[in-house]
Amino acid sequence: MADATVTLPRSTPRRRGGVASLNTGTAFGVGIATLWLSLLILVPLGAVVWRAQRDGLGSFWDAVTTPQAVAAIRLTVVCALLVAVVNAVLGTLIAWVLVRDDFHGKRLVDAIIDLPFALPTIVAGLVLLTLYGVHSPVGLELAYTRAGVVVALLFVTLPFVVRTVQPVLREFDGEMEQAAASLGASSFTIFRRIVLPNLLPAISAGTALAFARAISEFGATVLIAGNLPVASVHIFTQIETDNTVGAAAVATVLLVIALIVLIGLDLLQRWAARHA
């Protein structure tokens, strides 16, 4: 599951052999694909941005600076940042354990990592509410709290860092580590000076994707958030009350944040590829 969602933007690789030039067949295919993607994605997303500024930039600004909108954007970004940091640390740790450690049931644990991607998000929300909701059997009532939102986001973003770091760690041979150890480096120094720098591009890629997912999540947070202003829940409420301009304005802010993260990620990957 993760492999699909975690496919990273990358620079164009070199192709083997020749490639068909722009002939009628290609032009026809490109035409169909462009038309299709325009009708499905480009025009609708354009319409969101267009609707956000329909009554002028001033009213766009008014819509995103209402107290509810500001609270929603702030809460969402803060929670997403927290989720990104936890994922960066624990995701790397889990990937490490899954690659370098060996124990009974490792394959099962490895398969469970993908469960949050396979599970419908609304079911994920319900599942967490059963354990951490009102009348929590473990005495942890996180429903309708920020902590609850963070736990829901941690659940749905679990696979991102694990699945981007895992293959890199698997490729990474132990020779450098052995060399460092033979020169007297402590295991902490080896991790800090040898392993971490090599994993950093993968960790940041996974973290960026987890952050992008966290700011846009709806299904997992809608039940657990209650009256807390989460950005996507705020947008949903605005749509339901027919305030499409307000919905579109906050949606545009989310789209811009996501776009910045994806472009930043692309630049980072190119930089890493050049310095590899």
Partner: peptide, 18 residues
Amino acid sequence: DLPIAVSPVVVGLALILV
């Protein structure tokens, strides 16, 4: 790749607007 980064609610809003 764009749909990965778009909130499902925004997808719904976008389709309604068109």
